[in-house]
Write a protein that binds this DNA or RNA. Structure first.
Lengths: 257, 257
DNA sequence: TAGTGGTCTAGACCACTTC
DNA sequence: AAGTGGTCTAGACCACTAA
């Protein structure tokens, strides 16, 4: 005798299994809430709750007025230390500034909403840049997109004296494009040499969810990066918030002694 | 004229703000659902839903029959590459086996449920260990705990010939304790030299949530690690699932060319 | 316009905790 | 026993989508 699912959790469980074992392939529309309710003999409310549970697990997306769908899989970007390689940002100054300033995507990705401002350093920023809290620092706020969808934000902080008057604090988008920050700092006699990166995951705030269009049930990965010159002086502190489903970080290293 | 919150989202928003700005400190009990309902003039159902939203953001924990509480903060472990350092696992064989086999915690942490079995390699494992899918490999499944609470799981896969007959595949807990795997492999003439680590975040499966006691609204970080000898032969593939709120990964490296 | 998901109400019962 | 969160029902209205 088979038990018939009659709670939100149980209905969610049977749907979850169908999604995971492939009998409901990615992108397929699930039965309508009213259908589920009738099918399992529960109230519409309960059937809807089952879908909420699956949404919160990241297994299902809903489109209001259209239906509920098994979550599509997305192309995933693999990020290694190579993304900071000199060869990727060390270009002549002329080339670096030759990009179209109208926000056209010059590579496969576009840097959106280049937004520069001068703010007071909070405790985190101050500690990372080795200055006093409250000192004025430049922030460069960006939202990165790929193929039209935003994938992560990045806020870079610089000591005021290091970047004053440079292209870095020019609010026009595209001026300090891909890796441009490192080039500008090098021109200023502050060549980056070493990076320390911290990573952790959490659920997005409501603002982040709106900004990055993060569906319910998807976490973010926060990356905090401090870049230093060869003599240990911090020249950039950056905080990025990434949609977790879009990225894998990879790292190869020798076993330390 | 101030709008009075009267939807689940709005009530959640006002509570969220109180939690984030500290007027409801961590660990404090929130108003009861019935109280909230009366206070905001909504049904009990709606007030409860506001709490569900906050739970899913990881801001609130509920204890059935007791109350809803602003989420406590937990001690966070920072993991760097040093956790693989030779000095931490290169001990004499005698010492490595001298640990109490009754599961007592000999260091600050205890390795639980040491569970060894021989299974067929799936595609992932086979690719990582450079063997054919379906070949038999040893799996060492563990649940790690710290101060009594489980923090992460770790499944290590070994090529059969590499570990057959060693302490690694002895199912008694504690035998191959902290870092013991590397020591055993070294004794076998397969000293680990290089590690490749992949990390990404997602929501836990139901099984993971149960096993690691993960509250709603907390993601996991999956770490996949391949360890190789100096000549590039893979000797261990390990997959770990970590409670996101308990860990930060850190990594310092020179900027590549 | 018909069908979809989203949300709310009012009431009920259950399971758990606390005293 | 009293108070708490968890869940379900039945019905209602709204907002959005698709034809």
């Amino acid at each position: 005798m088979q038990k018939i699912p009659n709670t939100a959790r149980e209905i969610a469980a049977t749907l979850r299994e169908q999604i995971l074992n492939g009998s409901i392939p990615p992108g397929t529309q699930l039965p309508a809430v009213r259908t589920l309710a009738k099918q399992y003999g529960v109230s519409r409310n309960t059937a809807a709750k089952a879908l909420v549970l699956l949404k919160n697990e990241g297994l299902v997306t809903t489109r209001h007025g259209s239906g509920a769908y098994a979550r599509e899989e997305f192309p995933i970007r693999v990020l290694g230390p190579d993304r900071y390689a000199r060869s990727k940002w060390q270009v002549t100054t002329v080339e670096a500034h030759s990009a179209d300033a109208h926000g056209g995507t010059t590579t496969q990705q576009g840097g959106q909403s280049q937004d520069v401002s001068l703010i007071e350093a909070d405790a985190d920023v101050a500690a990372a840049l080795n200055i006093q809290p409250g000192e004025l620092v430049y922030v460069r706020d960006r939202v990165m997109t790929r193929e039209g969808v935003s994938t992560h934000t990045m806020a870079s902080f610089y000591r005021r004296a290091d970047v004053e008057g440079t292209a870095l604090v020019d609010p026009r988008p595209g001026i300090a494009g891909r890796g441009g920050g490192f080039q500008v700092l090098t021109d200023r006699g502050l060549p980056p040499d070493e990076i320390t990166e911290d990573k952790f995951a959490r659920m997005p705030t409501v603002e982040e969810a709106l900004l990055l269009d993060i569906p319910p049930g998807e976490p973010v990965v926060v990356v905090r990066r401090t870049t230093r010159t060869a003599d240990g002086q911090p020249i950039e502190y950056a905080v990025g918030v990434h949609r977790a489903s879009r990225f894998i970080w990879t790292n190869t290293f020798k076993i330390p002694d």
